[in-house]
Write a protein that binds this DNA or RNA. Structure first.
Lengths: 157, 157
DNA sequence: TATTGTTATACTCTATAACTATA
DNA sequence: TATAGTTATAGAGTATAACAATA
């Protein structure tokens, strides 16, 4: 929120917005994490997809797109890369052959815990010095916003 | 922070990391903002650069690159676009002709307050429903992290 | 030689929309 | 026809590195 309502003629600065600080820190956290997973030849988007498949074992691409807030095209390209790295496989559907299932390979499944450890480490680096109360406050605020977002339609254009 | 240190064999999930939530919310906030400024034919990165020049009136590209945490190449491309939109001009240096100054045009200067109002509006939409205490807690935590890590660059994407 | 700004190249991620195969 | 997945194209952003002009 802009903090200077006292002077309506003043143009609010970048730092006056909570969104600015969030983006600032978030970009740093994500960038640091991307460097860590790059050592395993994986991007952040790839990590998210791998982690999702780890949890659910197998998913149809369009369901994954919905869940991750990406387009089917984006999922398709991501799958191409992960398949090329032999971390994910496409399993053709049997009943309805328009569908397919995405699943982790053994290598993919083995990789997820290693990436997860890197995520733990990254989180500790950035948020470890906050008190538990501070962390809880941030987490609660974020989830609050997500809940509020979930109640309204996503902007399409 | 992963919240399940009790069980060392469990693979921490995406949602166990504060970084995950931060990234999720931050992406939503930035995306919504990008839609707003797109109505003025401006991107978020362009807004940041315009706002910076508004504050400082004129800057050398390499100084801007340092300040925004971008490469000189990126600033060069960004300047190309803003110059094409007649929002920014390149002013050749007089003493050392390797340097140049970037400055807002009259149109650029007139646009910044409008964009600033959109930033205010965007912040209100996403954080307006939080209590002042909650907002303050998030802001304090973010600034804490920035201070702790000595981060000084600005977020761009 | 060192530095400034530009350019070339390449990659990630995103989105739209046309395309195919199937139902 | 409707849907699932792919592909093509485009654009914004990232980064590295070679380059020309200037000091």
């Amino acid at each position: 929120m802009p903090q200077q309502a006292r002077d309506p003629t003043r143009v609010s600065g970048l730092e006056d917005h909570l969104g600015y600080w969030l983006r600032y820190v978030s970009n740093q956290v994500s960038h640091a994490f991307s460097l860590k997973v790059a050592a395993r030849d994986v991007t952040v988007a790839e990590w998210v997809m791998l982690r999702e498949l780890y949890e659910r074992d197998a998913m149809v691409p369009s369901a994954l797109a919905d869940r991750l807030g990406m387009t089917r095209g984006a999922i398709s390209k991501l799958t191409d890369r992960l398949a090329a790295k032999a971390l994910v496989t496409r399993v053709p559907g049997r009943q309805d052959r328009r569908y397919q299932n995405l699943a982790l390979t053994a290598a993919g499944r083995a990789l997820v815990p290693q990436l997860s450890a890197l995520a733990d480490q990254n989180d500790a680096e950035f948020f470890g010095h906050l008190t538990p109360a501070e962390r809880a406050a941030v987490e609660r605020a974020m989830k609050d916003i997500v809940r509020k977002l979930g109640l309204r339609e996503m902007p399409i254009d």
